[in-house]
């Protein structure tokens, strides 16, 4: 695992890209599901955040150029595609490599939580979080299929 300096460096680079723990968990989800066709409710259930928080985080990720989203106006589902190339690819790979381990993810979440962010409290929107593990009490996608 990388040390705290690495994590700080990664987060510094992410300054304008990530703000909320949900942002990171969404990125982790999309790393494993790089092209996902889901409704907002389904996506929120998979990452175990509420729909409003997921909506805000999606806006952040799309705004940062990390994700694209398309929607059929007649359907509630959206196609989310994780950006695989471009200038952010190396940074994203490094970030998700760190976040791939439980300890790395926890460290990143804690670092995100400590950072001042204009978007609001980092934990807002998370459902029944376990304070020790950082995992949600809800059945997450990871629990269901891992």
């Amino acid at each position: 695992m990388r040390n705290s300096t690495d994590i700080k460096h990664l987060l510094d680079q992410a300054k304008s890209r990530l703000g909320q723990p949900c942002d990171l968990d969404l990125l982790r989800f999309f790393r494993r599901h790089p092209r996902a066709l889901l409704t907002s409710e389904q996506l929120a259930a998979f990452v175990a955040y509420d729909v409003q928080q997921v909506g805000r985080s999606l806006d952040t990720l799309i705004g940062a150029g990390l994700l694209t989203q398309s929607q059929n106006p007649k359907s509630g589902a959206r196609m989310y595609v994780l950006t695989s190339g471009g200038p952010l690819a190396d940074w994203l790979n490094s970030l998700l490599e760190v976040a791939a381990t439980p300890a790395g993810r926890r460290a990143l979440l804690q670092a995100l939580a400590r950072r001042p962010w204009p978007g609001g409290a980092p934990e807002a929107g998370r459902k029944r979080r376990d304070s020790r593990t950082g995992r949600s009490g809800r059945a997450s996608e990871e629990d269901a299929y891992g």
Binding site: L37, S75, G76, M79
Partner: peptide, 24 residues
């Protein structure tokens, strides 16, 4: 292309002429 979705979304998609899935 690999697409992750749910059965319900998939079913809805195939009932639409301008499906995102079939567009992919």
């Amino acid at each position: 292309k690999m697409v992750f979705t749910t059965r319900s979304v998939f079913q809805q998609e195939l009932q639409q002429a301008d499906s995102l899935l079939l567009d992919e």
